[in-house]
Design a binder for these strands. Structure first.
Lengths: 258, 258
DNA sequence: CGAAAATTCAATCAAAATCAACCAATAAAT
DNA sequence: ATTTATTGGTTGATTTTGATTGAATTTTCG
């Protein structure tokens, strides 16, 4: 067997099994332990896999910037459940605005509806939306470091060209008095405008955001359907429920994800 | 058997099997080991295949269409050199348009200038630009599958809000009569507009694009500085040089990437 | 928690496989 | 007939491989 073929076999085995023990790779390739070790060293150097004690594993990420993709991988069970619930509101033919952020990103894998058009201001959203083969539009703008959201004048101008059936928005704070808020006024402006352009708005926020009021308010609680998780603070939760239309999902973390 | 026939058999065998051991090729062609070795050396020189220890393989590019990320990792030496040369034109404080595509993407790691502003229509460019901490703006638009370029009305509208010091554009064809061209008219529209908005334009194209005329023309050869690689077709190269302002880099491929 | 046992690791070396360079023999061209 | 190009075999050099070693790591157990 040629060296090149062995590499292929190793990588292929990893694709299927995520991780591989040394002995397994020896078995698959019919090569010696030493050879496999050497191969792993080389393939790791080429960033094709990651060596771990006892074998090898797939790289966490196939995307250059690991941080963004890792977040994607590390969706908490809470986020997944909120994403799944949010996706249930989506119907065939909808035009959607999906806000930048990981909470909203979690919606995409659950969208079953066909002929959905997605408009977004989030770099991470684009990547996922494309991967799931949705028709995807981007608003322009300045790329904010950190959240990788598109903001500013360009974003506002672009956004005004669209109308949405549904807007899905992330938030940093959910406060009874102050409503929904986020630290960056420019991001708030985009969220506000997107909601204005949408027939129906949904805000995704786990219950840890309850009672938080950050710098820039972009909507009142009654302006959107709030998709959230169970809260320990039942009193506050009840108050919020009185004002907003709340959809609550369990926050059990069955898989032990953080 | 004629030499030429042997080449055909070797290449044909490779097409079917992706990789070939030396012994297999000896078997197929009924030639000696030495002859096959010589053939492989020659065919590799013509970029028809890649020699590997123990035999030969198809060029990587034909084995599997690399994903966007892999492309990014697998910048050829040519692309890197073109990127480096292109980056030398960039000065402190420049406002740049960087077209979607891997050729233009290769520029980013080489940008030394400070306070550079990058505007782009390419998903891959955004990721890299952010990683290198440049001030980055995106034009809006429809996200085209495949190239992941932003195109269409939204992109045009956005683009008209900007003026650039320099525009760096990728192309699919460099033809003396037809100029620069690309298969998608919508992408051509963006390229054309970006060049119009820029004080100075640069087109990046390795010499394999010479003589290619694809569907949609977006500029004439004299409209931009052409950054390219050495060409085997010296006659055509000279003709191009007469028309366009050409910057040529060596196309040595030290690392054996396809 | 910490020491002992077991496993895995990296480094080294000799054997095997493969390679490039060279030479003589053959075929083709002048 | 002489020269030139191509081929096949041989040589020593290079690369790859598998086994062995002691070191490093993980696991087990007191």
């Amino acid at each position: 067997m040629l060296t090149f073929e062995r590499y292929e076999k190793i990588l292929n085995y990893l694709e299927n099994n995520k991780v591989a023990k040394l002995a397994e790779l020896v078995e698959v390739t019919d090569a010696s332990e030493s050879t496999i070790r050497r191969d792993l060293t080389i393939l790791e150097g080429e960033k094709k896999l990651k060596r771990i004690h006892g074998g090898a594993s797939l790289l966490k990420s196939k995307v250059a910037e690991p941080s963004m993709f890792e977040k994607q991988q590390q969706f908490t069970n809470e986020k997944k459940q909120m994403g799944e619930r949010a996706a249930q509101f989506i119907q065939d033919g909808d035009c959607l605005f999906i806000d930048a952020g990981t909470s909203t990103q979690a919606i995409i894998p659950f969208i079953q509806a066909k002929d959905v058009v997605i408009v977004t201001n989030g770099l991470n959203i684009i990547e996922d939306a494309i991967q799931h083969q949705f028709r995807t539009y981007v608003i322009g703008g300045y790329v904010k470091s950190g959240t990788h959201a598109f903001i500013g004048k360009g974003a506002v101008d672009s956004l005004q060209q669209f109308r949405f059936d549904k807007a899905f928005i992330g938030t940093n704070g959910v406060d009874i008095q102050f409503g929904y808020s986020t630290p960056d006024p420019e991001e708030a402006q985009i969220k506000q405008l997107a909601m204005k352009q949408a027939s129906q708005s949904f805000v995704l926020a786990d219950s840890s955001k309850f009672g938080d009021a950050t710098f820039a308010k972009f909507a009142s609680l009654e302006d959107a359907v709030l998709i959230t998780t169970e809260s320990d603070d039942h009193v506050y939760f009840e108050k919020v429920s009185k004002i907003a239309n709340v959809e609550v999902v369990s926050n059990d973390d069955l898989y032990g994800n953080s």
